[in-house]
């Protein structure tokens, strides 16, 4: 023991206890300080955003610069379109990658792939925007919804891959053996037995990934770009809620600030719904297992 000798005097015992209680108090205060920002953010979202949520907000296009009124209908639809495209581009890679890790890969290869996925998860999202700009915007000579969808989709790949692997590993080995013993081809065994059993878990992983990318702004700045009108074609720039919040939040107009708060409230609500869905789905799973 490197500390000074613990003398068993009453004063010293009291001092030690007091110190311990003080630390307990500090820890409680820290925990409160950590969750306080969540409540502050939600409080101000409701206070500043709720009053601006009206029919116009959900049905109208943004008004020209400086004019009062208008809404974010195109941004809300744009966000949904981008998320759907990201799912189409990113999820198949994620799921097949997860299948490889759980069903085929050697330990050594798997370790490297997992490591790469975890590192890729930490790549700043703005970097994805730059890379997709070079890959899709420059060659096709224009910002497009496709580019935005691909940027978000790429961000989904490592997330979906890791969660898919985790749930596939939970499927009991005896299921696989039983299927193979009946003469089922391996790929059919994987699709019909393993993936089928873990389907709910895989879906949960996809929703977790969607919740994480739904609020991403940085990868869309130079891919989807944003648009103040409806996009009728996926080859055109498209608006998204986070982009619109960013643009309006930094604008000098009070009415746009008001709408930025309303947009932020809608975005936050969407993300909360996704998170609650994840909770409900995973609660069911832990019950049945």
């Amino acid at each position: 023991m490197t500390e000074s000798p613990y003398l068993p005097t009453p004063q010293f015992a009291r001092w030690r206890k007091a110190k311990s209680s003080a630390v307990t108090g500090i820890l409680v205060a820290c925990a409160l300080a950590v969750i306080a920002p969540l409540f502050l953010v939600i409080y101000f979202l409701l206070e500043k955003g709720f009053s601006s949520l009206d029919w116009n907000f959900f049905t109208q296009l943004p008004k020209p610069t400086g004019e009062v009124g208008g809404g974010m209908a195109n941004a809300i639809v744009g966000s949904v379109v981008l998320l759907a495209m990201a799912t189409v581009f990113g999820v198949p890679f994620g799921i097949f990658g997860g299948i490889y890790l759980a069903e085929y890969g050697s330990d050594r290869a798997n370790n490297w792939i997992r490591f790469a996925a975890d590192v890729l998860n930490g790549v700043p999202s703005i970097v994805w925007g730059m890379v997709v700009y070079l890959l899709l915007v420059v060659p096709f000579k224009g910002f497009s919804a496709y580019a935005g969808g691909v940027a978000l989709g790429l961000m989904m790949v490592p997330l979906v891959m890791r969660t898919t692997e985790e749930v596939l590993i939970l499927v009991p080995q005896s299921y696989r053996e039983a299927a193979l013993a009946l003469g089922v081809a391996r790929w059919k065994m994987i699709v019909v037995i393993v993936v089928r059993t873990a389907l709910k878990g895989i879906a949960t992983g996809v929703i977790i990934a969607l919740a994480r990318i739904a609020g991403e702004t940085a990868p869309l700045l130079f891919t989807a770009l944003g648009n103040t009108f409806w996009s009728h074609n996926l080859k055109e720039p498209i608006s998204a809620l986070p982009l619109q919040i960013f643009a309006y939040g930094l604008s000098p107009y009070d009415d746009w600030h008001r709408q930025a708060w309303a947009g932020a409230l809608v975005l936050m609500a969407l993300i909360i719904v996704l998170n609650v869905t994840v909770r409900v789905l995973s609660r069911d799973r832990s019950k049945t297992d």
């Binding site: 969540l38 953010v41 101000f44 979202l45 500043k48 919040i245 939040g249 930094l250 930025a260």
Partner: peptide
């Protein structure tokens, strides 16, 4: 939930609050 709050919402809250 705090982890789920998008960066741009923190930014908006940062500017105005």
């Amino acid at each position: 939930m705090l982890a789920a709050v998008p960066s741009v919402i923190f930014g908006l809250w940062g500017i105005f609050v």
